[in-house]
Computed example of a mutant assay.
Amino acid sequence: MNGNLMGEYKKILEDNIQILGYEELRYSIFEGAENNRQEYQIRIEKIGDIFEVYMTADRAGVIGKYEFEDIFDAFHQFLSIMQDTILSNRKRVRDGKPAEYPSSLWDN
């Protein structure tokens, strides 16, 4: 898959993130598996013919890795993890527990 197409896919996903209001979340789109890593970050990477979607935990360790052949299945999983991140952190804050990191998406 050429770089132009990957750039278009990245734009589509970034547009969806903006529409949903998820820009504050920590995420990385096709940056390379070892680049721009942060704790509690949702990531999507292209590795060969596979799209990997996963989240990092504390110390940027990988948790819950999913693999897809179809980019749009990977997009769906990526956005679903974003929504789950917001919901789980809102529950943590509601229950008096610390959130993964500060964000207005759950600090209100």
Rank of each mutant, 00 (worst) to 15 (best):
M1K: 10
M1V: 08
N2W: 10
G3D: 14
L5S: 11
L5T: 08
G7D: 09
E8N: 07
Y9D: 05
Y9C: 05
K11N: 09
L13Y: 02
L13Q: 01
D15Q: 12
N16F: 14
N16E: 07
N16L: 15
I17N: 02
Q18F: 15
I19M: 14
L20T: 04
G21V: 02
G21D: 02
Y22H: 09
E23L: 05
E23P: 04
E24P: 01
L25R: 00
R26I: 08
S28M: 12
I29W: 10
I29R: 04
F30A: 08
F30M: 14
E31W: 09
E31M: 14
A33V: 10
N36S: 10
R37T: 08
Q38V: 09
E39V: 04
E39C: 05
Y40E: 00
R43P: 07
E45H: 13
K46N: 09
I47M: 10
G48F: 03
I50A: 04
I50R: 06
I50G: 03
F51E: 00
F51M: 00
V53G: 00
Y54I: 00
Y54K: 01
Y54D: 00
M55N: 12
T56H: 03
T56P: 01
D58M: 12
R59G: 07
R59E: 09
A60L: 06
G61V: 07
V62Q: 13
V62N: 13
I63E: 04
K65T: 05
K65I: 08
K65L: 11
Y66E: 06
Y66T: 04
I71T: 02
I71H: 02
I71K: 05
F72S: 13
D73V: 04
D73P: 06
F75L: 00
F75A: 01
H76F: 15
H76D: 15
Q77L: 12
F78K: 00
F78S: 01
T85V: 02
I86L: 05
S88N: 13
R90N: 10
R90M: 10
R92K: 15
R92D: 11
V93I: 14
G96K: 06
K97L: 13
E100M: 14
P102N: 13
P102K: 13
S103W: 02
S104D: 09
S104W: 09
L105K: 06
W106D: 04
W106M: 14
N108H: 15
